[in-house]
Design a protein around this nucleic acid. Sequence first.
DNA 1: TTGAAAGCGCTAACAG
DNA 2: CTGTTAGCGCTTTCAA
Lengths: 347, 347
Amino acid sequence: MRKPTLEEVAIEAGVSKMTASRALRGSADVSKETRERVIEAATRMSYVGNRLALSLSSQRTNLVAVVVPSMSNIVFPEVLAGISAGLDGSGMQAVFGISDYDVAKERDIIRDMLSWQPCAIIVTGLDQPEETVKLLQHANIPVIQLMDLDGTPIDLNVGLSHGGAGEDMARALVGAGRRRFGYVGSALEKDLRAGKRKAGFERVLHSYGLHFVNQSVDDAFSSIALGKRLTLAMLAAVPDLDCIYYSNDDMASGGLFACMELGVAVPEKILIAGFNGLDLVNSLPAPIATSRSPRRAMGEVAAQLVRQAVAGAQDARQKTVVFKPVITGIDGYDDAPDEPETARLRP
Amino acid sequence: MRKPTLEEVAIEAGVSKMTASRALRGSADVSKETRERVIEAATRMSYVGNRLALSLSSQRTNLVAVVVPSMSNIVFPEVLAGISAGLDGSGMQAVFGISDYDVAKERDIIRDMLSWQPCAIIVTGLDQPEETVKLLQHANIPVIQLMDLDGTPIDLNVGLSHGGAGEDMARALVGAGRRRFGYVGSALEKDLRAGKRKAGFERVLHSYGLHFVNQSVDDAFSSIALGKRLTLAMLAAVPDLDCIYYSNDDMASGGLFACMELGVAVPEKILIAGFNGLDLVNSLPAPIATSRSPRRAMGEVAAQLVRQAVAGAQDARQKTVVFKPVITGIDGYDDAPDEPETARLRP
DNA sequence: TTGAAAGCGCTAACAG
DNA sequence: CTGTTAGCGCTTTCAA
């Protein structure tokens, strides 16, 4: 029992393939009566069109390929949700792939996705190796690099400067009077954006004649448990820190829990600073500093750009959309008007 | 500058389309010399095969369609990561869709995904309306219903009993001496599995002559912030509860933070119980009870079943794989051997 | 080991 | 308003 084809529906309805096709797609020039007969037949036979044939024939697809490094960190699913929502109603459909922070796997996934002839592709970050860049360029479709701005974009670019985010946070913390800094991170050789934040943070520290008094970086991926463990160890070795910068909010939350366990006052004695602005942070028993990254919004904006570019707007290529993260959780700092995370265009 | 086709590669290599096709796919019967010539040409031209044509022609695809209700709750991305990992090396590729807990949207997404002729489809839960079930059945491919067991499966079924999870948790808590129960949940009309857990919990309470002294259910989706807010309100109204059951760990964590803010001892005065066994729970400043649901494992097992079913194993249909969540965080209860979350087969 | 013919299920372009 | 013809780019099948 094979699935019915358009031809079978057409025969059932007593019309030609073409008329059936038009009726099903809601083309204007089909008599109401014919249309109803076709639709009735299709419904009765549980007809589902074959998109492979449709796309092959019409030379266009509704697929938007998306490649993210991980699903274990809530930030990427949030971006995907933004993309998916932003595509809603466009007739386009996002297809996701996971690279596990592995450049070779990323290349293979991108190659595989391109073979489905997507109408656009969205990848994470700007640090693809040359071979992958070539693949992307040869695809001849809009390419969006998402979440990061620190690098040279291929085509469209939507994100925030992680180096800048690290710098801003360092300035804010030094401005809040902190001087003895620790750093707790994880998987920096894989999560390049976390590395860029750290580098930016250190640039500013150095400009003030300061430095990380202690650093602890683990190979494992970030988690609350890891942040807690590394922080307990660090505070045992260097109890007199007054601020710890973490690779992200998961790690930072673990750091807070470590401080609570040790009876260290947060933020009075030690200020905890992370990155992302997770929902979690707003409910924690003590305030921690963070840069809010507009993850869902970045996904939605990327989806908008895809829609424009696919619609053929010629000015919808080679653009950069800049998001500016907002720092919260530092007393006397985030009194600044919480400006909406607006997107600025840079031609 | 269109993308090169197989034919163009063939001409470039001085062979026929067919030979080029065979060479590229690594078919045995192509002379080494010819093969190299073809591959060289393909590489030079950055040839990427057109899967639409491939699949249309060969009548098979490597697509596994997956529909989940949300990306905002970390449990679904974890399931997706499991599916994706479980499919690795099979040549199959997962395609994800988000239904936003909306049955109409779910139906549309399923219809759309089926039009891509996937070789299998994985959906969340067993509560699809009849129309969607029909769609799934007519697709004539392996259908996997994931995460829940409470209902009548269409084909393959992998998950755990949420009713049973609620019952087990209630038994454990009553066994731990708790008597005055509150319930805090959210979006129960959408998250049917949370509703099943609550119903199971209440069944057991009633069997002990107990009931929820107070209930608070919000329409919004679960979050730590919401759990905290509802708990603060509940404890203001009914301060003498000795246990609160939450719709999940996010809500429960918020509940813990509320108790900490109020200076209520957890778990001495109030025992907090959730569901999922999130990473977060293990690092919290006070122990809370939870049922660990093996999210990633469920995804991986689903992927295995897909591989078997697609490979044609006839006994790979109409099966159920039962997971049993493990309760942790109740003093004197989880001393029980932490048995690995094994999968039991039910023919 | 290679090639030619036919066709997968659909739509574009043209004709009636 | 409806039908016909010709592919889309690839694989299958059969023949050389």
